[in-house]
Amino acid sequence: MTQELTQAIVDLREDDALAMVDDLLAKGDDAVGILADCKAAMDVIGEKFAGGEAFIPELIMAGEIMTGVSAKLKPHLTAATPEEKLGVVVIGTVQGDIHDIGKDIVVTMLDIAGFDVVDLGVDVKIEKFIATAQEKDAQVIAMSCLLTSAIDSMKKVVSAAREADLNGCKLMIGGAPITEQVVAYTGADGYGKDAVEAVELAKQWIGGK
Protein backbone atom coordinates (compact mmCIF):
# COMPACT_ATOMS: atom_id res chain seq x y z
CA MET A 1 0.00 0.00 0.00
CA THR A 2 2.59 2.49 1.08
CA GLN A 3 4.37 2.16 -2.24
CA GLU A 4 1.60 4.53 -3.22
CA LEU A 5 2.64 7.04 -0.54
CA THR A 6 6.26 6.85 -1.62
CA GLN A 7 5.20 7.50 -5.21
CA ALA A 8 2.95 10.43 -4.23
CA ILE A 9 5.90 12.14 -2.53
CA VAL A 10 8.25 11.37 -5.43
CA ASP A 11 5.65 12.97 -7.72
CA LEU A 12 5.39 15.92 -5.29
CA ARG A 13 1.63 15.46 -5.02
CA GLU A 14 1.41 17.21 -1.68
CA ASP A 15 -2.33 16.94 -1.04
CA ASP A 16 -2.43 13.28 -2.02
CA ALA A 17 0.55 12.42 0.15
CA LEU A 18 -0.82 14.16 3.24
CA ALA A 19 -4.26 12.57 2.77
CA MET A 20 -2.65 9.15 2.46
CA VAL A 21 -0.75 9.68 5.72
CA ASP A 22 -4.05 10.59 7.42
CA ASP A 23 -5.69 7.45 6.03
CA LEU A 24 -2.82 5.20 7.06
CA LEU A 25 -2.79 6.59 10.58
CA ALA A 26 -6.58 6.25 10.82
CA LYS A 27 -6.21 2.63 9.78
CA GLY A 28 -3.73 2.16 12.62
CA ASP A 29 -0.57 1.81 10.52
CA ASP A 30 2.73 2.15 12.32
CA ALA A 31 4.11 5.72 12.21
CA VAL A 32 7.70 4.49 12.02
CA GLY A 33 6.82 2.46 8.93
CA ILE A 34 5.10 5.43 7.32
CA LEU A 35 8.15 7.56 8.00
CA ALA A 36 10.37 4.93 6.40
CA ASP A 37 8.23 5.06 3.25
CA CYS A 38 8.57 8.83 3.18
CA LYS A 39 12.32 8.61 3.55
CA ALA A 40 12.45 6.13 0.71
CA ALA A 41 10.73 8.79 -1.39
CA MET A 42 13.29 11.38 -0.34
CA ASP A 43 16.09 9.01 -1.39
CA VAL A 44 14.53 8.75 -4.83
CA ILE A 45 14.25 12.55 -5.07
CA GLY A 46 17.87 12.88 -3.92
CA GLU A 47 18.92 10.46 -6.66
CA LYS A 48 16.91 12.36 -9.24
CA PHE A 49 18.57 15.58 -8.09
CA ALA A 50 22.03 14.05 -8.36
CA GLY A 51 21.10 12.76 -11.83
CA GLY A 52 19.89 16.13 -13.06
CA GLU A 53 16.22 15.14 -13.20
CA ALA A 54 15.12 17.14 -10.16
CA PHE A 55 16.17 20.62 -9.08
CA ILE A 56 16.11 22.95 -6.09
CA PRO A 57 12.31 23.56 -6.23
CA GLU A 58 11.73 19.81 -6.13
CA LEU A 59 14.00 19.50 -3.07
CA ILE A 60 12.21 22.37 -1.36
CA MET A 61 8.76 21.05 -2.20
CA ALA A 62 9.72 17.57 -1.02
CA GLY A 63 11.08 19.07 2.20
CA GLU A 64 7.83 20.93 2.62
CA ILE A 65 5.82 17.72 2.20
CA MET A 66 8.10 16.01 4.73
CA THR A 67 7.47 18.81 7.20
CA GLY A 68 3.73 18.28 6.78
CA VAL A 69 4.08 14.52 7.14
CA SER A 70 6.32 14.83 10.21
CA ALA A 71 3.77 17.08 11.92
CA LYS A 72 1.10 14.42 11.39
CA LEU A 73 3.37 11.57 12.55
CA LYS A 74 4.89 13.31 15.55
CA PRO A 75 2.11 12.54 18.07
CA HIS A 76 2.37 8.88 17.06
CA LEU A 77 6.14 8.71 17.26
CA THR A 78 6.66 9.77 20.87
CA ALA A 79 6.37 6.24 22.19
CA ALA A 80 8.57 4.77 19.49
CA THR A 81 12.28 4.23 19.93
CA PRO A 82 14.09 7.47 19.24
CA GLU A 83 15.83 7.34 15.93
CA GLU A 84 19.57 6.85 16.04
CA LYS A 85 21.33 9.87 14.56
CA LEU A 86 24.22 9.53 12.13
CA GLY A 87 26.18 12.33 13.78
CA VAL A 88 26.16 15.99 14.71
CA VAL A 89 26.56 18.68 12.05
CA VAL A 90 26.90 22.32 13.10
CA ILE A 91 25.92 24.52 10.18
CA GLY A 92 25.59 28.21 9.37
CA THR A 93 26.14 30.97 6.83
CA VAL A 94 29.44 32.59 7.74
CA GLN A 95 30.04 36.04 9.15
CA GLY A 96 29.46 38.85 6.65
CA ASP A 97 26.80 36.96 4.69
CA ILE A 98 23.08 36.72 5.39
CA HIS A 99 22.00 34.40 2.55
CA ASP A 100 20.14 31.40 3.87
CA ILE A 101 18.39 29.59 1.00
CA GLY A 102 21.22 27.21 0.11
CA LYS A 103 22.09 26.64 3.73
CA ASP A 104 18.45 25.88 4.58
CA ILE A 105 18.20 23.28 1.82
CA VAL A 106 21.31 21.55 3.18
CA VAL A 107 19.81 21.66 6.70
CA THR A 108 16.63 19.97 5.46
CA MET A 109 18.50 17.33 3.50
CA LEU A 110 20.88 16.54 6.38
CA ASP A 111 17.96 16.31 8.74
CA ILE A 112 16.03 13.96 6.49
CA ALA A 113 19.17 11.88 6.00
CA GLY A 114 19.27 11.34 9.77
CA PHE A 115 21.86 13.79 11.03
CA ASP A 116 21.47 15.80 14.21
CA VAL A 117 21.69 19.27 12.67
CA VAL A 118 22.49 22.36 14.74
CA ASP A 119 21.55 25.34 12.59
CA LEU A 120 23.24 28.55 13.74
CA GLY A 121 21.50 30.72 11.13
CA VAL A 122 23.24 33.43 9.11
CA ASP A 123 26.10 35.89 9.69
CA VAL A 124 27.53 33.42 12.24
CA LYS A 125 30.59 34.57 14.12
CA ILE A 126 33.74 32.45 14.05
CA GLU A 127 33.68 31.79 17.79
CA LYS A 128 30.07 30.68 17.60
CA PHE A 129 30.92 27.86 15.17
CA ILE A 130 33.78 26.70 17.39
CA ALA A 131 31.94 26.97 20.71
CA THR A 132 28.90 25.13 19.38
CA ALA A 133 31.01 22.39 17.79
CA GLN A 134 32.74 21.92 21.15
CA GLU A 135 29.54 21.97 23.13
CA LYS A 136 27.73 19.49 20.84
CA ASP A 137 30.82 17.40 20.14
CA ALA A 138 30.13 17.85 16.44
CA GLN A 139 31.63 15.61 13.77
CA VAL A 140 31.16 18.19 11.02
CA ILE A 141 31.09 21.97 10.77
CA ALA A 142 29.34 23.04 7.55
CA MET A 143 29.77 26.63 6.36
CA SER A 144 27.81 28.37 3.65
CA CYS A 145 28.25 31.63 1.76
CA LEU A 146 27.02 33.29 -1.39
CA LEU A 147 29.30 36.32 -1.36
CA THR A 148 32.91 35.99 -2.40
CA SER A 149 33.69 38.58 0.26
CA ALA A 150 32.66 36.02 2.90
CA ILE A 151 35.21 33.43 1.79
CA ASP A 152 37.71 34.91 4.23
CA SER A 153 35.30 34.23 7.10
CA MET A 154 35.38 30.56 6.11
CA LYS A 155 39.16 30.60 6.16
CA LYS A 156 39.08 32.10 9.65
CA VAL A 157 36.68 29.45 10.95
CA VAL A 158 38.95 26.76 9.52
CA SER A 159 42.01 28.25 11.25
CA ALA A 160 40.16 28.63 14.54
CA ALA A 161 38.87 25.06 14.33
CA ARG A 162 42.35 23.68 13.68
CA GLU A 163 43.66 25.59 16.68
CA ALA A 164 40.81 24.52 18.93
CA ASP A 165 41.47 20.83 18.23
CA LEU A 166 37.84 19.77 17.83
CA ASN A 167 38.36 16.05 18.20
CA GLY A 168 38.72 15.37 14.50
CA CYS A 169 35.73 17.48 13.48
CA LYS A 170 35.65 17.84 9.68
CA LEU A 171 35.10 21.16 7.94
CA MET A 172 32.81 21.43 4.96
CA ILE A 173 32.10 24.52 2.88
CA GLY A 174 29.52 25.21 0.22
CA GLY A 175 27.79 27.92 -1.76
CA ALA A 176 27.79 29.42 -5.23
CA PRO A 177 31.36 30.79 -5.26
CA ILE A 178 32.99 27.65 -3.87
CA THR A 179 35.43 25.75 -6.08
CA GLU A 180 38.35 23.40 -5.35
CA GLN A 181 40.50 26.54 -5.46
CA VAL A 182 38.46 28.05 -2.64
CA VAL A 183 38.67 24.80 -0.66
CA ALA A 184 42.46 24.98 -0.93
CA TYR A 185 42.47 28.67 -0.03
CA THR A 186 40.34 28.21 3.08
CA GLY A 187 42.00 24.96 4.16
CA ALA A 188 38.61 23.23 4.52
CA ASP A 189 38.37 19.45 4.23
CA GLY A 190 36.01 19.53 1.29
CA TYR A 191 32.92 20.99 -0.31
CA GLY A 192 29.62 19.85 -1.66
CA LYS A 193 28.57 21.52 -4.89
CA ASP A 194 24.94 21.07 -3.84
CA ALA A 195 22.85 19.77 -0.95
CA VAL A 196 22.94 16.17 -2.10
CA GLU A 197 26.75 16.21 -2.36
CA ALA A 198 26.94 17.84 1.07
CA VAL A 199 24.95 14.99 2.59
CA GLU A 200 27.08 12.41 0.78
CA LEU A 201 30.25 14.07 2.01
CA ALA A 202 29.01 14.13 5.60
CA LYS A 203 28.07 10.45 5.35
CA GLN A 204 31.50 9.56 3.96
CA TRP A 205 33.30 11.46 6.69
CA ILE A 206 31.29 10.16 9.57
CA GLY A 207 31.12 6.65 8.19
CA GLY A 208 34.89 6.70 7.81
CA LYS A 209 35.61 7.67 11.40
Partner: peptide, 18 residues
Protein backbone atom coordinates in the same frame (compact mmCIF):
# COMPACT_ATOMS: atom_id res chain seq x y z
CA UNK B 1 18.46 45.45 2.30
CA UNK B 2 20.97 45.40 5.10
CA UNK B 3 23.93 47.75 4.70
CA UNK B 4 26.97 48.67 6.79
CA UNK B 5 25.86 49.62 10.27
CA UNK B 6 22.34 48.34 9.54
CA UNK B 7 22.35 44.59 9.92
CA UNK B 8 25.78 43.92 8.45
CA UNK B 9 29.26 45.02 9.52
CA UNK B 10 31.09 48.12 8.37
CA UNK B 11 33.06 46.09 5.86
CA UNK B 12 30.14 44.36 4.19
CA UNK B 13 28.36 45.34 1.04
CA UNK B 14 24.60 45.68 0.99
CA UNK B 15 22.68 42.43 1.15
CA UNK B 16 19.12 41.37 0.46
CA UNK B 17 16.79 40.54 3.30
CA UNK B 18 14.75 37.98 1.52
Amino acid sequence: YDWPGHGVGEDSGYQYNE
